[in-house]
Design a protein around this nucleic acid. Structure first.
Lengths: 210, 210
DNA sequence: TTTTCTGTACCGACTGGTCAGTACACGTGA
DNA sequence: TCACGTGTACTGACCAGTCGGTACAGAAAA
């Protein structure tokens, strides 16, 4: 009874097989981790057969890289960059907008799943050089984006000279990752809220001195 | 007739079988995670047979709890408490001493392994309620210790009124966990150093106003 | 037009290996 | 004798990955 209305397969619920696999896998991996998510689970969730999976992906590792690339792309383009789009906005306001965005994301996820990038970093940094390399690059890009905003604000006098952009950026990234982790652990969004509030207080150190 | 504890068990390189298992397992789990560390690996590393393992532990989960208890005890008694032992020392100095201690631990571990508690929190928070409960307790105790120091300093006037001890404690714990994670990812101790330096700068916000 | 060929998309049984956990025998000391 | 420690062989579930084969579309050949 298979209707042939839709063009031959390649389409499954309106998206490609590859997309169905990626969607199911990234959802499962976010909760169970990379190693503890079995291919069979991904296949069951996505409704894709095993042969078909290996038609689209070389290996489980290949799938892992594809997911990582997808997460990275989405984070950089849809979460990080939009906050820094307007070059005339105050740098500290841009950073605060970004903090609020991540807080909102935690609220939306009901404190489940944590940060996909942080999770993979914790799980694989010491055991998979390939993943570690890619993860290092995203965090470097993230840090770079913050550093850039702070440095240019500094040259315009809207951020104090006492601010060392690289150190502040590192610290903000670390604090955010830690806050998301503690929020996932305690299942209490108040932890994230308090941490974001303290980050804003910390940032107030760098308002230009009068 | 007196006690039936591990004192009876044979001694293996100067320690009990149970201790040998715990030592090997916590070392492996720190790097490979709980789920991805196989019992056979632990047995091979500790030189203990399988029957013997199941004589001393009910299950792999039981071993996990034992390791967790050991990590927790060691952290609270040997890392956290010593920094806050002297009730007359300045609270901010106590916290700084603690930060330096964690920085030194990262240096000593060559940026490998990260924080055992943070790793387990990242891996298991969403999939194992038992582990999550115990991990939540340690982090609560850690936070509590910082809160206490700050609050009593506040009442003595050595920490500013603007400091909200719970929020500051949460933020410090989160920042430390994040800093350790990023250090493990980048394999660069400078990340940890910068983060600790920024934490100290943040703490300077709470020196009493003159 | 009809048939045949070819490449893409797909299926699920199977393989070799690993996992946590069990069964049981052996030795030793009280 | 008998309970405590211990070693080893085993069990069944599960894992990533392979394999033989099917379905079907469009192009080429008839």
């Amino acid at each position: 009874m298979t209707t042939k209305t839709a063009e031959h397969s390649k389409v499954r619920d309106g998206r490609s097989t590859r997309e169905a696999i990626l969607e199911a896998a990234s959802r499962l991996i976010r909760v169970h981790g990379y190693n503890h998510t079995s291919l069979d689970d991904v296949l069951r969730e996505s409704g894709v057969g095993k042969g078909n999976f290996y038609y689209h992906f070389k290996s489980k590792e290949d799938l892992g890289y594809a997911i990582l690339d997808q997460i990275i792309g989405s984070f950089l383009e849809r979460t990080l960059e939009p906050c820094f789009a307007d070059p005339d906005e105050h740098a500290l306001a841009q950073v605060q907008c970004f903090l609020d965005r991540l807080l909102e994301a935690q609220r939306a996820s009901n404190c489940v799943g944590g940060c996909p990038l942080g999770n993979l970093a914790a799980e694989l940094s010491d055991v998979h050089e390939g993943f570690r390399g890619r993860l290092t690059s995203v965090f470097a890009a993230w840090r770079e984006r913050l550093t850039l905003a702070l440095r240019s604000a500094q040259s315009r006098g809207t951020v104090d000279r006492s601010c060392q952009p690289e150190a502040v950026a590192d610290f903000l990234v670390a604090s955010l990752e830690g806050a998301i982790l503690l929020t996932k652990l305690t299942k209490d969004i108040a932890v994230m809220e308090q941490c974001v509030a303290e980050m804003k207080r910390y940032l107030s150190l760098f308002e230009p001195r009068v």
